[in-house]
Design a protein around this nucleic acid. Structure first.
Lengths: 200, 200, 200, 200
DNA sequence: AATGAATGAGGCTTCATTCAT
DNA sequence: AATGAATGAAGCCTCATTCAT
């Protein structure tokens, strides 16, 4: 669906996407009907299909825009910081910021991972995100700032921690956003911490 | 649905659950119809409703059994290991083992997190899993083996890393299960490693 | 759609086809909704899709069965008549008989010729029908009973006359079926008749 | 809809009708949407409803104009030819000419015969066409040039042959238009030809 | 004259579930 | 225990038509 839209049209489209995103996140993609979306917006059914060629396309679009928006935020936060470890930290904090404002993002991503027709788009974006981090990690290793290890795995470790903490804590104790960010950064940089242990 | 089942009945039920789990994971819960499930098993629709009162119940059952099974595996692995850090490591490795054998588990969990009617069951199980880890973490902190920090956050950090790495690597490079486990453990214990950095 | 049907099932299916055929002929294919069909039969909508995978399939099925039935009638009438001209006559009369009993057949055929997705099936059947006649015509020419000419064109001439007369007269003056048949046969055998004319 | 149109307006209207006619013939009346028509012409929807009050009216107009055009061609061809048989022949040839240039006409007529709301207009025109031929036939009978028979049936015989042959052959072997016309005329004048047969 | 946005009834189809056998 | 036929609400989407600009 590639219509040339007026300013008002673009606004409508955006509203539809936001409204639908919230509903999808709250009720699930399938349980949320197109009828429900247009009713909720107080418009006719035709409006939906004027802006999107299908429910599926709408969802894909929401996904795409979300991930773009997140990435822009990260890049803005990182700026031209030269220290790779610091860049990682800034990226984590920016992500948490963004996620705090876009809570439903999680649910949508999770759902998307659930049906093959959406996983392709998902994977593509994932790879971009991972690629960004991998770059920092590699630099960090070269600079001796990060221990040696498979950069991709380290990148995924960072993603895993960040997303999980965001998901679990950002919404319950929103006021402690700062503390959550600190914890995420600390875990990524140090893990469980000094554990000069009796290994095996 | 709590029928008294014969041995053969229990087997049938189990087969249905396994078949459905695979389908749900591959196509998604909603896109997989009851008709498809019974057809795939070569039985009539009556069979399905003999063993499960609804599609929803079937899904909940699958979820429940999966999580039980995973937890049993973890506990078996940990045994009576006294070192809390070591217990965490054993838990991570056991989880990865189990996940390697039950790939679709991920997709099901993700989907469940997507619709409210399933999140309750999910949360309950999550809490149990987190509780297990939190216990080890607290002990570790007390014993000076783990740096001070919110135990719950640390526990989620562990979960986040483990699940993400499992999801990303266990299926692509199944032969390197060992390496993935090592990476997960290392990330949890050390994060990105020594980074005595020029902070700011 | 290829379900194994019980006796009752086959009957249902047949009823649906007959009911739908009448409606399609009366109101048109598109204006006749599936809802209308099932309502008219007093059954639920699911029944329709139990027997046919789509409205389109139903229509194609109706077409197929009609043409089969007509051809069977023709063959029965012709039997083993040795005279090719007589065979043509018998074919014409049998067709008119059948058409008198299956009035809606015309409208359905006409509609089918209207949309590409149906023309394929149509053409296939047309070719069979034409082939039957062509055989008789060729024999007739060889036997000197029919004037020389492109047999296929002659066959279509016969079809054109028969169908047109059937369509125009069989329904208006049903009592004169005999007369219509006589006229059709006469026109096919003699055209407008002796016209030794002052050509130009 | 009876707007007073500028020269440009009349042209637009004509273009719309031609474009729509082609689409209707290719895809069918119902499957061809107004949106498709205006898109195909590169104009907005308003244009359509400026020239036609409804899709139905458009179709009726197309029908009307086609039949008018065909009849004009026939009359021009016949001129003031005194011989009725010759007039019939000229009519047949003119029809085939016209049909060769307006292939989609067939499909439209066929479709129109499919839905009651269009059959009225159709019948009216049919009657005119038949009336024309009937006049020639009657004269022919009186003049002893045509065998005795129900003139209306004979007229329909002519129509049936002409249309069927046009439909079947004009489009496949366009280069043989002449031959098709000859065959049609011959069939109408002589049928299958001399068949002094062992009638029963 | 013309556009693009909007309407909403209605179309086809799916599917969880029930029921007679 | 099991089957296959049946139900009907509900879903996604189309489309002729209208309207504000």
């Amino acid at each position: 669906m590639n219509r040339r839209l007026t300013a008002r049209g673009r606004e409508r489209r955006q509203q539809l996407m936001e409204f639908a995103a919230r509903r999808f996140a709250e009720n699930g993609y399938h349980p949320t009907s197109v009828a429900e979306i247009v009713q909720g917006m107080g418009v006719g059914k035709g409006v939906f299909y004027w802006y999107f060629s299908s429910k599926e396309e709408l969802f894909a679009e929401i996904l795409r825009e979300s991930q773009q928006s997140l990435r822009r935020r990260q890049q803005a936060a990182i700026g031209d910081e030269p220290d790779p470890v610091r860049r990682i930290e800034l990226g984590i904090r920016a992500s948490l910021d963004w996620l705090a404002e876009h809570r439903h993002y999680f649910t949508l991503i999770r759902f998307a991972a659930t049906e093959e027709r959406f996983t392709a788009a998902l994977r593509r974006n994932q790879e971009i995100a991972v690629g960004d981090i991998v770059r920092h990690v590699k630099e960090g290793i070269v600079a001796g700032r990060i221990r040696d290890g498979d950069p991709e795995m380290l990148a995924h470790g960072i993603l895993g921690v960040t997303n999980e903490l965001a998901h679990q804590f950002l919404f319950r104790r929103a006021e402690e956003a700062e503390a959550v960010a600190d914890a995420a950064v600390a875990f990524c940089l140090e893990g469980l911490g000094r554990t000069a242990a009796p290994h095996r």
